[in-house]
Simulated assay, not measured.
Amino acid sequence: MPDMPGPARQVVIVGYAEAELLDIACASDVLDAANRLGARRPYEIRLATVDGRPFACQSGLTLTPHLRLDQVRGELDTIIVAGGLGHRAAAGDQRLLEHVRRLARHSRRTASVCTGSTVLAAAGLLSGRRATTHWACAAQLAEHYPSVSVDPVPLFVRHGDVYTSAGVTSGLDLTLAFVEQDHGPTLARETARTLVTYLQRPGNQAQVSMFLSGPPPEHRQVRDLTAYVAEHLAEDLGTPVLAQQAGISARQLTRLFDAHLGTTPGKYVRTVRAEHAARLLSGTELPLTAIARRCGFGSTETLRQAFLDHFDTPPSAYRRVHVRTAYA
């Protein structure tokens, strides 16, 4: 329930050398836009570092903090730790970690953007929690902090009062979610319109589509089969059919998919169908029955189940968020 008018919400963004400028700007600019649009309890946004001195972001641009972390006192609304190339050094800075732990104890919610999750993990704030980070750093986070349940798929994750978000601009989605929590959907929508972005992508949306996650497979047969799958979604794409198409045994097909795509033929086909359905949901007005048929799902219920498994949201809810005419 949105708050009534009251004192400003104290927000501290934690920076450090070689932080990602976008991680800081996405959060600060969303909150600033909400202020300018009439947030009834506006956000007082401050950038803080260990020493309070200007620091160079990973892009080379220099930012000047408002204050040192040890100068931040009292109750806070939100603490947000930025990510960036400097996240490993930041996670090894005991002074920074002590301040982050202290601030988290006095903050209504604690959050990280991108690899800022490494700092939260090093501070012990993610132990026993589910969390996300930039997809390219998820395996490393899980390896270095085994007490953290790392999920590389979502744009952002909430576990209790701790929030972690994925790579870079997902911080915008997370901060819009904060605005909606604090002030309601109307202000969140107007903030998104001002920033010319989605109202907000839901946190459970995948960070990276399988079509963008890497180059086409180098293995010729696997590459040809993935092209065949994309062009014949409405047809039978069972493992025996794909094996026959490639002129190999079903066992050899399974071995090739595992080696070059890291999955089984059946799971690959189901994922391609779900992602194609997502594009049809957001880009057309086709009914679910037609989308299910075009994508090779036997029924709308089969489509719904595949969508829940892949996007953790039903097709109807996905369409409401992603329809391209939302701001027409």
Rank of each mutant, 00 (worst) to 15 (best):
G52N: 05
R53Q: 14
P54S: 10
P54K: 13
F55G: 04
F55M: 13
F55Y: 15
F55P: 06
A56E: 14
A56F: 12
A56N: 13
A56G: 12
Q58E: 15
Q58V: 12
S59L: 13
G60V: 11
L61Y: 15
L61E: 14
L61R: 15
T62V: 14
T62Y: 12
T62P: 08
T62K: 14
L63D: 11
T64K: 15
P65F: 05
P65S: 10
H66P: 03
H66Y: 09
L67Y: 11
L67G: 02
R68L: 08
R68F: 05
R68P: 04
R68Y: 09
L69M: 01
D70G: 05
Q71W: 06
V72K: 00
R73V: 09
R73T: 11
R73I: 03
G74R: 02
G74E: 01
G74C: 02
E75A: 15
E75Y: 08
L76Q: 00
L76A: 01
L76W: 03
D77N: 10
D77C: 09
D77T: 06
D77M: 04
D77F: 07
D77I: 02
T78N: 03
T78F: 07
I80N: 01
I80T: 03
I80S: 02
V81N: 12
V81K: 11
A82M: 03
A82C: 09
G83K: 06
G84T: 14
L85S: 15
L85K: 15
G86D: 07
H87P: 06
H87W: 13
H87T: 12
R88E: 15
R88K: 15
R88H: 15
R88S: 15
A90F: 05
A90W: 06
A90R: 01
G92W: 08
G92K: 03
G92Y: 05
R95F: 08
R95V: 07
R95E: 12
L96Q: 03
L96V: 01
L97T: 06
E98W: 07
E98H: 11
E98M: 07
H99M: 01
V100H: 07
R101D: 07
R101Y: 02
R102N: 10
R102H: 12
L103T: 00
L103K: 00
A104T: 04
A104P: 02
R105Y: 10
H106M: 08
H106S: 13
H106E: 13
R108P: 03
R108D: 10
R109K: 11
R109D: 05
A111E: 02
A111Y: 07
S112R: 08
C114W: 00
C114H: 00
C114T: 01
C114S: 11
T115P: 08
T115N: 09
T115Y: 06
G116E: 05
G116P: 05
T118P: 03
T118H: 14
V119L: 09
V119N: 12
L120W: 07
L120V: 04
A121I: 06
A121P: 09
A121M: 10
A122T: 04
A122L: 01
A123K: 00
L125V: 09
L125Q: 06
L126T: 03
